[in-house]
Amino acid sequence: MSVNAHYRRQIRALAAPFGVSAAKVDPGQGVAPADTHGVTERDEIMIDMLTLKVNDAAAQVLGMIGALRYTAAPGDLTTGLQERIDCGLRRRGSVLTWADSVGVAEGAPSIFNDLTAWECADTSFHIEDFVQVDVAIVDDAPVISDGDQRTLLLHGFAFALQFSRLVYALSAPSPVRCIVAANDTNATFRFHQIRQGESWNRPDLDAYREDKMIVLDIEPATA
C-alpha cells in the first residue's frame, strides 16, 4: 500500500521515543527518511537504516488511511516484552536467535527449508502472551477484536523498534527482518537474518488476506 507523507510523518513519530534517527522509503510502501542531521543521500550507506512495510489491513486498523483517528504506540514496553529485549541475542553458528533459545542450532536448518525458516520458527512468540487484551473463546477457538488486534500491532511495532537496538549492538551486525502479524486469533513477532534468495514472508503483504502485517528491516551501517 502507498503511505502518503502525512502518515509517513506519523510513523516516524512512533519511532522518535525509541531513538530511531533514520528510516528509508521502500517504493510504494514505507516511511520517509527521518532527520539525518545533514547526512546526504550519498552518505546513507554509512548510517543505520530501518525500512517499514505494512499491508492494507494493518494500515486500516492502525488508522493510516481513511478517516480513522491515529493513536501513537506506547512509549514503554510491557514487563514481559521488556524481558524479551533484556534476554538479548546470540549467534549460534549460522543462525541468530534469542540468547536463551533451546533450539538445536547445530543441525539447522534441520526439517526446515532454509536457515531463514529455522530462525523464524525458533524466534517466534505470541504478543498476546505479554500484552493484556481480551481473548474470547468461541467454539473452542480464540477470538480477538479488531481493536485489540490494533493494540497488539502497536505493541509489536514498539517492540521491533527496541529490538533494532539489539541488532545494531551485535559485534558482527547483519541485516535483520522483524515480522509482526495479527489476526482474529493471535498476534506474533518473529525475526530472521536477511539472506539472498530466502524470505519467510511473501513479497506482496496484501496477499495475506486474514493477517495484518508489519515488516521492519533493520540494516546496520556497513562502514
Results as ranks from 00 to 15, higher is better:
58 A>V: 13
137 I>R: 11
95 V>A: 07
219 E>Y: 15
107 G>M: 11
217 D>P: 07
177 R>E: 00
16 A>K: 10
174 S>W: 02
58 A>W: 01
139 D>N: 11
30 G>C: 07
177 R>I: 02
36 T>M: 11
144 I>E: 00
190 R>L: 15
112 F>Y: 10
105 A>C: 08
157 F>C: 07
61 V>Y: 00
166 L>T: 03
111 I>Q: 07
178 C>Q: 02
207 A>H: 13
21 S>K: 06
193 Q>H: 04
145 S>A: 13
91 R>I: 11
26 D>A: 15
95 V>N: 06
68 L>S: 09
169 A>P: 01
92 R>Y: 12
11 I>R: 04
148 D>S: 03
187 A>P: 02
47 I>R: 11
138 V>Q: 08
115 L>H: 04
124 S>R: 15
209 R>G: 13
31 V>T: 08
192 H>I: 05
180 V>E: 00
125 F>C: 13
167 V>P: 02
22 A>K: 05
44 E>D: 15
87 C>K: 15
175 P>H: 03
81 L>S: 12
18 F>V: 05
212 K>I: 04
47 I>T: 10
69 R>Y: 07
207 A>Y: 09
86 D>Y: 07
131 V>H: 09
103 G>I: 13
151 T>F: 01
169 A>G: 05
182 A>E: 00
17 P>K: 09
87 C>N: 15
59 A>P: 01
4 N>F: 14
48 D>Y: 14
25 V>T: 13
95 V>S: 06
117 A>R: 07
18 F>Y: 11
52 L>C: 08
216 L>N: 02
211 D>E: 03
196 Q>R: 09
92 R>M: 10
191 F>L: 01
206 D>E: 02
208 Y>V: 14
83 E>A: 06
207 A>Q: 08
203 P>R: 14
200 W>Q: 02
199 S>M: 04
142 P>T: 08
34 A>S: 11
200 W>G: 03
187 A>K: 02
4 N>V: 14
131 V>Q: 02
5 A>E: 09
202 R>E: 14
160 A>W: 02
65 I>R: 04
206 D>W: 03
59 A>Y: 00
67 A>C: 03
107 G>T: 12
163 F>E: 02
51 T>S: 05
143 V>Y: 06
74 P>E: 01
209 R>V: 07
156 G>T: 03
121 A>E: 13
100 D>P: 04
65 I>T: 09
36 T>S: 08
62 L>H: 00
164 S>T: 15
104 V>M: 12
132 Q>R: 12
46 M>I: 08
97 T>N: 15
162 Q>I: 11
91 R>L: 10
200 W>D: 01
183 N>R: 05
212 K>N: 08
2 S>A: 08
